[in-house]
Design a protein around this nucleic acid. Structure first.
Lengths: 206, 206
DNA sequence: ATATGTGAATTGATTCACAGCG
DNA sequence: CGCTGTGAATCAATTCACATAT
């Protein structure tokens, strides 16, 4: 499996969405050309991306949509369940707790944490908001894999430390800051102000 | 200005945040080494990134925080105002309309659109929600530069077409899909489910 | 005939080493 | 002497061309 570009993983997510749309529309077959057009990349790129993981097509024919969809889901780890906690139950944490589309892919929200004693005991989705001191126990009891970091910027590093100390190995970081974690912990960032600033740059230099 | 890696622009956003923190803390001087450590990149990288835009340091000494901060803001286009509309006033659009931190950088929310006639006329921040048919007029009257695309997945392409037709040249796309726009229109995407799926991949292959 | 899969070529980004300047 | 700025070298990613399979 040598070394797979991170951009390849991002594109696989795009391919999966296209394949899901096709599958729901009842389309049975597709090709690297078609996927490439939908994903706005080259057909070479589609084939190369898939080639990191195996051979999924039939020469002269293309790809079978349900089969390729299943394979990409498997490659991305989306055929197994993932247990998630949310750390930081302000506006953003609340909004994400209400997001209805996790269940489409076996992600389960299994715990909600906030350091504010005012919030402790409040109900979110039939669960009480807990203090981060309870995180290590909950992570063990409920087999948590992933933490959503939705605290304010100034609290991000401390919250990240608590998530790591609790034994969680993957963080989805919504805070607008670089967090420092051991290298075995994986962090992905979701940062809309950064997207807006990049847009500002490209518009200014249009 | 030859061709600047997109990764460089993302890192400049990170440097700006670090410089802002330093400035608020009253720190007057910094170095590529220090910025590199905070941003979790190499010092070569910091210097190379800055070198695309000019010479901002003093050899043997380093960088002056307020001056470098100002320069990076300018490079990113953040020293001028940007007028923004939100297209799609569901949960996400509403949440973003309530986000308090746009004013820190001169972004102004100047219009809210939704295709749902039920929503038309509702107030958001002292503004009525309008129908997208009014977008071309509003864009002209209010000199709009950027549109936030916060409609559901299935409506994303149509809404993007309306944004482009209204004369907007930059889109911050929150919908989990690739949108097709003319090449002079710049799109940046904010996609938290994609981040979550990448995390799923890297955790599975840990 | 047609579309995949893949080594080779090219393009692009990062790292390096050191020249340049305070 | 210390730290920036930058051409050259290395490393990585994308593109290409075509051999391969149906």
């Amino acid at each position: 499996m040598s070394t797979i570009p991170t951009a390849t993983i991002s594109r696989l997510v795009t391919y999966l969405r296209i394949l899901t749309d096709l599958d729901f529309s009842g389309v049975k077959k597709t090709s690297s050309d078609h996927l490439a057009e939908e994903a706005q990349v080259s057909a070479f790129q589609v084939r190369k991306d898939l080639a990191y993981f195996g051979r999924f097509g039939t020469r002269g024919t293309g790809y079978l949509v349900p089969m390729l969809r299943r394979e990409v889901r498997r490659i991305l780890g989306l055929t197994r369940p993932w247990n998630v906690v949310i750390v930081g139950m302000g506006r953003l944490g609340q909004a994400i707790a209400d997001y209805p589309n996790f269940y489409q892919y076996d992600f389960s929200l299994c715990g909600f944490f906030d350091i504010d004693p005012e919030k402790a005991g409040d109900q979110v989705r039939d669960e009480e908001i807990m203090h981060p001191r309870d995180m290590p126990r909950i992570v063990k009891e409920r087999d948590i894999d992933i933490g959503f970091l939705t605290v304010p910027q100034g609290a991000a590093q401390q919250a990240a430390d608590q998530i790591v100390a609790a034994g969680i190995g993957g963080i989805l970081n919504f805070a607008p800051s670089v967090i420092n974690v051991p290298e075995e912990v994986h962090v992905e960032s979701v940062d809309f102000m950064a997207g807006l600033m990049r847009l500002s740059f490209y518009r200014q230099n249009r």
